[in-house]
């Protein structure tokens, strides 16, 4: 188990969701193959992983109310940096006005990039290398006929301000665990937008990594499935979370608050971490949260959080507000957004 030398806490969190949504039933290749009431977020013509990350980080900092002083690191998990040779982290540092002696970097390539950024930030704070660190995640994955496997792929960003656990933190990090396994479950070659999938073997890797990671965490913490009020499991498709929950002994009501797939789709690098934002938006003091993430070919991270009294003092509900702030586009509008052609609103 990965555990910091000093207690770590979340001081603020935030998310950004684009306004545009499409109902999955409106995607021609998806008809009949996906739950008819699912929808997902789509970036506007002037949005990308950088603009979304900036908004999420600003919201997290606003909630933390700690200003920008003392931030020693900003790490961003993403699989869709609009640049292939320039990190999002440095753009964020400039955009936030904290350029200079801070560590700014991107964590790339997988569906658990955001939780990797989160655990690395916890390590930086826990080791004393930074008094505060920002862990962000932002992704904008287009779906198209060239990429059928990514039909749930979506857009959004999340951010967390981590610091030493004290009076100002809203949740304490109790411990974390990770399980890494090299697997060719789903992958993409450099320069290719096409995701390749090894079919049923892909699911096997996910089950093995997530169960190993979660079981190790529970063992180390001396906790059982019933000790958690909220559980967030990988939700890349409708079956994965419920299948894992059944296998690990979690009940549907534990999963409810953190299940964002039906409303938002699968925001690859941060799908689980967006679930955490959704839970923190409604969590009560003393509730315990389990987060487990999975990245294709990357393994699984899991960690446990204990919600503190200070959460009641924060202004929350922003995530739910953003869920309801939406406008639907049809398939034609979706195609135009993907191709960068104007969306006629006249």
């Amino acid at each position: 188990m990965l555990r910091a030398n000093v207690p770590i806490g979340i001081e603020g969190f935030g998310a950004y969701l684009p306004k545009h949504r499409i109902r999955l039933r409106d995607l021609p290749l998806a008809q009949g193959a996906v739950p008819q009431d699912f929808e997902k977020a789509i970036c506007g013509p002037d949005e990308d992983a950088i603009t979304m990350a900036k908004e999420a980080v600003e919201r997290a900092l606003r909630m933390a109310g700690v200003g920008k002083a003392g931030i020693g690191a900003i790490l961003c998990g993403t699989t869709s940096n609009p640049y292939s040779g320039k990190p999002i982290g440095s753009v964020l540092s400039k955009a936030l006005g904290i350029e200079g002696p801070i560590l700014a970097a991107d964590i790339n390539f997988s569906g658990k990039s955001c939780s990797e950024a989160f655990l690395l930030c916890a390590g930086l704070v826990g080791s004393g290398m930074a008094s505060r660190a920002i862990a962000a995640g932002s992704d904008s994955i287009p779906w198209g006929p060239w990429n059928e496997g990514a039909i749930y792929s979506s857009c959004g960003a999340a951010a967390f301000v981590l610091g030493r656990d004290g009076g100002s933190s809203i949740a304490s990090l109790e411990g974390s665990s990770t399980w890494v396994m090299d697997a060719l479950d789903t992958w993409a070659l450099r320069g290719s937008a096409q995701r390749r999938n090894s079919g049923r073997f892909a699911e096997r890797a996910m089950v093995q990594c997530v169960t190993s990671s979660v079981e190790a965490l529970l063992r180390e913490l001396g906790l059982g499935p019933g000790d958690f009020d909220h559980v967030i499991l990988p939700q890349s498709d409708p079956r994965s979370a419920s299948g894992l929950a059944k296998r690990l002994g979690f009940k549907p009501e534990q999963m409810e608050a953190g299940l964002v797939l039906p409303k938002l789709g699968n925001v690859e690098a941060l799908s689980g971490m967006l679930g955490l934002v959704a839970v923190l938006d409604v969590a009560k003091p003393s509730e315990r949260i389990l987060v487990a993430t999975f990245g294709n070919g990357a393994g699984s991270d899991s960690f446990s959080l204990l919600v503190k009294d200070a959460i009641e003092e924060r202004e929350r509900g922003d995530f739910l507000n953003q869920l309801s702030r939406k406008g639907y586009v049809d398939y034609a509008g979706y195609s135009r957004l993907l191709l960068g052609v104007s969306v006629s609103r006249a």
Partner: peptide, 17 residues
């Protein structure tokens, strides 16, 4: 908000809207 303005000169211009 900070958004993409346009791509010009080989890089992406971001700015306020």
């Amino acid at each position: 908000v900070m958004r993409r303005i346009r791509e010009d000169g080989g890089f992406i211009e971001y700015g306020y809207k």
